[in-house]
Write a protein that binds this DNA or RNA. Sequence first.
DNA 1: GAATGTGAAGGTTTTCACAGCA
DNA 2: TGCTGTGAAAACCTTCACATTC
Lengths: 212, 212
Amino acid sequence: MVITRVSIYSRVLSILVDKGVDIISSDELGKLSGCPGTQVRKDLAYFGQFGTRGVGYNISDLKSKVTKILGMSERWKVALVGVGNLGSAFIAHEGFRRYGFDIIISFDTDKSKVGKIYNNVEIKDVSELKQVISEMNIKIVIITVPAQFAQKVADLLVDAGIKAILNFAPITISVPKNVILRNVDLSLELEALSFFLTHKELQDNELSMLYI
Amino acid sequence: MVITRVSIYSRVLSILVDKGVDIISSDELGKLSGCPGTQVRKDLAYFGQFGTRGVGYNISDLKSKVTKILGMSERWKVALVGVGNLGSAFIAHEGFRRYGFDIIISFDTDKSKVGKIYNNVEIKDVSELKQVISEMNIKIVIITVPAQFAQKVADLLVDAGIKAILNFAPITISVPKNVILRNVDLSLELEALSFFLTHKELQDNELSMLYI
DNA sequence: GAATGTGAAGGTTTTCACAGCA
DNA sequence: TGCTGTGAAAACCTTCACATTC
């Protein structure tokens, strides 16, 4: 939770740096990030003291500290498994590059795709996964394969020594405790909207416990 | 939180229905969903009593009740604004259709795109948004425009009477309290991975408060 | 005996309130 | 005076323990 918000602060700070603003208060940063100022202060306090009492936070200073906290001082090399609709879109997605993530290789099992180059990214056969990931020194992998193959791919990745996985397959996959797995389930996000549209009568505190 | 998990239970139940299983215990359903059985029971208890003590839950029965709770008894008509890489991929994405969401219309401002049909979905000019959304009786909209246009699009949607928005633009947007907004920020997910890779030394309970 | 449903306990996260400092 | 940093309080969520039912 904290980390997601710190990431958002980082986004907001970038925009402010570009705008040439120097100083910001926690309340203001909170407003721009969609949370209360006290939350901002507590979140940052977890990592140190970055502000000046009575003044606020120096934006470029805070930005560089937050960047370091997030481990985003250098760019990350990323691989992607499953070059379907979603996978191709992610390979072409400018946002990843802008925020410091380079998808430099991709994998699929489809013989008609393997060997092709899409958006400067080669598509290799999944059988080469372990070797290529080790050679290219990749630490983060995105899974965009159909649900039924996701666990198998995750197993391959774990075997290849990957410690961070972003999974878009709509299924529960398991990895060892020392591997970080994050799941993004697109339809599930829409289902949450469906729920709230269907239960508009529920209000505020009733909704709180149901959220996210 | 509850809703996200109930959505996952719904997925698991579908698979079990297909497999022809009849009955499942909360512990088993929890294991398949990635949470403890007691969580499953509490989550379901929020909406009623669906099981039989000493026995478990009747799968097809629970499935249909959960479907109703989520508001997924009927299909939802969805619009998408911003037919770029990501937007096109979502229009083509099978997953949405499989889980009951039909993207039936899309919008963009790019004159070279407007009027085209992609994957059976017409691309209309954003200026037609309000009228088309009303005519087509659309209740849910996906935003996949660049960050700098996201707030403007959200304002248009609110003006058009939309009450549920799924935003993929990496920026904080504000909507009135009666509008449900969910944000999916792809790079932010990767940043969370970056953080954990960078701070492997933090263990378990230290990490807990940082997680999402 | 087995598994649900649920009040109570235990944790975690957020918010409050204010001391401390520019 | 203004705003950060932070213990304490409040709110929230998860897990436990067990009475209840099949």
